[in-house]
Computed example of a mutant assay.
Amino acid sequence: MSAFETAHLDPGTPNIARIYDYYLGGAFNLPADRDRADRIKSVLPGMEMLARFNRGFLRRSVAFMVDQGITQFLDLGSGLPTAGNTHEVAQARDPRAKVVYVDYEPVAAALGAEILRDNPDAVMVEGDARRPDELFADPRVTAVLDLDRPLGVVMTGVMVFVGDHEDPVGLMKAYRDACAPGSYIALSQLTDECADPETKVQVHAMVEAYKGVIEQLYVRDRAGVEALFDGMTLVEPGVTLMPDWNPRPGLDIPTLSPAHGLGYAAVGRVD
């Protein structure tokens, strides 16, 4: 067994972060992850492209924030820091950029820390994005990020795990209120609002296929996503489908896929 495999608990159990890495073409995944990923793709054929659209939005939104002068990022529910993730985009545009990745899953946090061990300006923290007060008080976070300065908060795929019963609007407000003016929050969200009837059935079959790997997934419509940005100024073009948010040469991907309509994206500025 390789050093990669021995570094992780229960390699026979699929892991959400490694499954996502597999969809993105990364190297940090195991046979159990690939088997479950293929099962999910069998019920939602566009799942791999959906993951790539999500990563494309992350890359473009991080590039946008760096261009606005943001040099520090908090990436929530990040999964593994691989395959063109936040620190790679930010530090390529500004070598001073600092990134804290947060994931509540112990395997993702342990492997992420291992991946980043030679990068002093990018760290991985095990923590729960649903507990912002704890994160903003965590010395591992404050050792890297100056919370008195504008911050880029990356939430690409976080709210999909937060049900309405958990007050997602209140959670976003907590992050907004904790950020210095001039900060930005980038968010993506699974949706079936624009899907045809067949694809809607596939989306809900995909949600079922993920059970046993992660918690419940939640879909939202455009109005639900817009509500999350209450009290912030939406950056143009507002709430769009993920591939349509400010496409940039070299940072977007072809959009001819049924998955084009399965995710909303937006960036809000904290005033």
Rank of each mutant, 00 (worst) to 15 (best):
L76R: 12
R96W: 07
I19R: 02
E198C: 10
Y23W: 14
R130N: 01
R59C: 06
A223C: 02
V219G: 03
V219L: 14
G231N: 07
A63T: 10
E226D: 12
V43P: 04
S78G: 05
L147H: 08
P81C: 09
L58S: 03
A32C: 11
G224P: 01
R140N: 10
T142N: 12
I115G: 01
R60C: 05
D128I: 05
H8C: 09
T255K: 03
A137Q: 14
P150V: 00
G77K: 04
H260I: 04
A3T: 12
D138T: 12
A266H: 01
D148S: 15
V213A: 11
L116G: 03
T233E: 14
P181I: 13
A92N: 13
L111R: 08
V219C: 13
D221H: 02
P81R: 08
F73W: 12
M65A: 05
R36H: 13
N54T: 04
G231T: 11
A209E: 11
Y23I: 00
V160W: 00
L228Q: 04
P95R: 14
A108E: 07
G84R: 10
E126R: 14
Q202G: 12
T142R: 15
E215D: 15
S78M: 11
D121R: 09
G26F: 03
E134I: 14
R117T: 10
A143P: 07
K211I: 03
V239R: 00
L147Y: 10
R269Y: 02
M232G: 03
A90V: 09
A205L: 14
V43N: 03
P258R: 03
A174M: 06
T199N: 07
G25F: 03
G46V: 02
P237K: 09
F57K: 04
Y264W: 15
L135W: 12
D33L: 11
V66M: 01
A259S: 06
Q202L: 06
A180F: 08
N85W: 00
A178T: 08
V153Y: 03
L147F: 07
N29L: 00
R52M: 07
Y264P: 00
H8G: 11
P258V: 11
H165Q: 14
A209G: 06
R18E: 07
V100P: 01
D164I: 04
T86C: 11
F64E: 04
